[in-house]
Design a protein around this nucleic acid. Sequence first.
DNA 1: CCGTATCCCATTAGATACTG
DNA 2: CAGTATCTAATGGGATACGG
Lengths: 130, 130
Amino acid sequence: MGRVADVAPENACPVAPVVDIVFSRWTTPILWALHEHGRQRFVELERRIATITPKVLTQRLRQLERDGLVVRTYYPEVPPRVEYEISELGRSLAPLFAALSEWSVNLPQVERARLSYDALEEERIRGRRR
Amino acid sequence: MGRVADVAPENACPVAPVVDIVFSRWTTPILWALHEHGRQRFVELERRIATITPKVLTQRLRQLERDGLVVRTYYPEVPPRVEYEISELGRSLAPLFAALSEWSVNLPQVERARLSYDALEEERIRGRRR
DNA sequence: CCGTATCCCATTAGATACTG
DNA sequence: CAGTATCTAATGGGATACGG
């Protein structure tokens, strides 16, 4: 038996399922908005995230609701009112978001790494032309 | 001045840039593999991740290298040898990965939420047909 | 207000073949 | 071994219009 090939794909990276749930597209700003500003209506989220379209916002909110991270409450008034809030399970993500936020102190270092890499790239290309 | 509209898109969610860097597609299993099994060659990574194609693996490794999270070392031998390892900056992600790993205890709860949601959906649909 | 429906386009990934 | 090149398939998101 090999040391590598017998690792099932899903066991290769145990944190992958969590990433799929929490960091799939658009979910971070949505969860962040709900986490920071509490219970709010559809339009508020729409305005806060600004670049998101209602279609996509709906899709992602449904997904988060299905995963139990967000609670949707519908008030059958005229005009209708819908409010979204983070669930208890969603709130349990707080340490994760805190870790994420703390790591952002390293963003300048990433930026420097990129500049350095791009500079070397540029040099490599010019070297080839000679 | 509004309370919502004047928030710049990039400030709406301060952790978004970190997510883009660390949790873009395929980066999690790659960083995990390097974090868990240390310095290793291209083929080893390829075999470990199994479902990734060499093209995509190359693309993501280049991105991680450019962002300073991974270090690539080329040995001009025949046949050529290339080794990848996590950088110091990459290692600073450890607490983040730990938080992720800890949160995975909640995966069963997510699964239960999904089953519950789907059951209600099914019921709603059947209710409509009557 | 809170979405849905439809169409279209762009990015990304898979398949496959090939090279220094 | 460590990639690159090319083509194609699919997924997802934007624009727009409309409905309960």
